[in-house]
Write a protein that binds this DNA or RNA. Structure first.
Lengths: 113, 113
DNA sequence: CTTTTATGTTAACTTAAATCAACATATCGT
DNA sequence: ACGATATGTTGATTTAAGTTAACATAAAAG
């Protein structure tokens, strides 16, 4: 992507790690299934060059290409819970602090005077 | 990405679903943390426009932008197990079929004649 | 060894991803 | 109501992502 973002040019180590990991995992899954790059790429709908980039963990490659590879390998379901609000404990705490779900008990009756 | 791949132009429904989900989840996490698009985008190292694309689930956006958003929200660890070979049961079966890990028991002794 | 098959590398080309500026329109707090 | 902040939209610009072709090298299969 032109005017390449900082995040793509030099991603934080954590992001780079995940990217390399993902690439390796996709490669492993492909080899286990005895697929060549060309075969898998064709099923995904990309060129073999992009699949090579994916296996290398290239940051600037379109997310759909990565997800397409997972999809063609039958591994897309692993993405379903990513950033799931139900599992985002940090977020839930912050939300609760703002708008307490349990209605605060009134100390006194509304109409006591 | 120019010469846009088929997978990006018209992703399979499953991929589109995951993409929309991811976008929504990132948005939810951002709002819970009371961050504006501009604030989060700046932390990620992208423009507010790209973050808007991400929350819409745009297929052609660089994977690093998506991962950067997860990272800035403290949700990147959700990606660690995606396509993990240890959890790829389908792949493990295929591999086992090819090269049986348990050495096949010899029916007869090696030196029986 | 020889022939496939898989992958690496380079170069040329097309086109849209990402940025910025400017303005419009919510949405929120006071 | 008001002003401030957040987000939507448009157009112009830049530049690299993705494609193809061609050739090189590596690894399997015969």
């Amino acid at each position: 992507m032109p005017r390449v973002s900082k995040i793509s040019k030099s991603p934080p180590a954590a992001v780079e790690d995940i990217l390399n990991r993902l690439g390796r995992n996709i490669r492993t899954a492909r080899l286990r299934r005895k697929l060549s790059r060309e075969e898998l790429a064709e099923r995904v709908g990309i060129s073999r060059y992009v699949l090579a980039d994916i296996e290398k963990g290239k940051p600037t490659t379109a997310i759909a290409a990565y997800l397409g590879a997972l999809w063609a390998l039958g591994l897309l379901q692993d993405m379903r819970e990513v950033a799931d609000p139900d599992r985002d404990e940090e977020g839930k705490i912050l939300e609760r602090a703002r708008s307490p779900k349990t209605a605060p008990k009134r100390k006194t009756l509304d109409d006591d005077f």
